[in-house]
Design a protein around this nucleic acid. Structure first.
Lengths: 132, 132
DNA sequence: AGTTAGTATCGACAGATGTCGATGTCTCAC
DNA sequence: GTGAGACATCGACATCTGTCGATACTAACT
């Protein structure tokens, strides 16, 4: 409520469609405010954007990925640590991580030849607040 | 928090797969507790159940339905009131409402030849709490 | 009974999605 | 430079999903 809450979705849309990976590491970006679900009526394009974000986590493999990354030491995990627990092929895991990345639920950080993924808890929190 | 929070998913699963419509009207049922997303690691079947619930609302038409029902007078709306705002055919709207019904996000109550749908706000709230 | 109106179900179809093997890209070690 | 390992991308395929028109069902009203 302290921030402007009436911003439209356009800014969010671009953020969601392709979540720019932090080119140099950290994340220090505005967490966007979606229009609350209780603010009816929801416009069609707002609904599409919101549905896109929800669809990103409406998948068992991706939910397990979120869970695994959160539980990992240091709050980060690389792909090779996630393949076995999921029981899926490496390309498939990479694909799911990319979906989560594009939706802004995780960030990627390359170190050596490994790619470490971390959660963006504010993203989940924002979504939760929106549903409540 | 007052209720037992460590219940497994099995009971939930059946509730989710086919949400028994209140045969005689009211809703007075246990709202199930999913395993929190933060309680890692998430089992595969738990992830599937949770993903199923999320998929039910990860659709623009269904999000708009939720929004429209909530905004309707008396907190309820019949199908004929929802067809026009959504711009979809009546069978399609009926289909989406059934998805929401099966997932427990709405209840149905027939009065005359109309079918009135209401939200189950606890369902959304439970989902929100789970993501946070 | 017949008619009308509101919903639900069915069958079909196009488009989206999850999955994999094969291959490309990048980084490090030798 | 060569090779090996970690990850991403590509192409293909089967399955799932949203959508509609047609039709069946149900309740009210003549």
């Amino acid at each position: 409520m302290s921030m402007s809450h009436s911003g439209r979705m356009d800014a969010v849309a671009t953020t969601v469609q392709r979540y720019s990976p932090p080119t140099s590491g950290q994340e220090a970006r505005e967490e966007p405010c979606w229009p609350a679900l209780s603010e009816a009526p929801l416009r069609r394009d707002d609904a599409e954007t919101l549905a896109g974000v929800l669809r990103a986590i409406a998948d068992p493999a991706r939910l397990q990925l979120i869970s695994l990354i959160q539980a990992a030491r240091g709050g980060e995990a690389c792909v090779c640590d996630l393949v076995a627990p999921l029981g899926l092929s490496q390309p498939t895991v990479s694909h799911h991580l990319k979906v989560l990345l594009d939706a802004g639920f995780v960030t990627r950080c390359r170190r050596g030849s490994w790619a470490y993924y971390r959660l963006v808890p504010e993203r989940l929190a924002a979504l939760a607040q929106l549903l409540a």
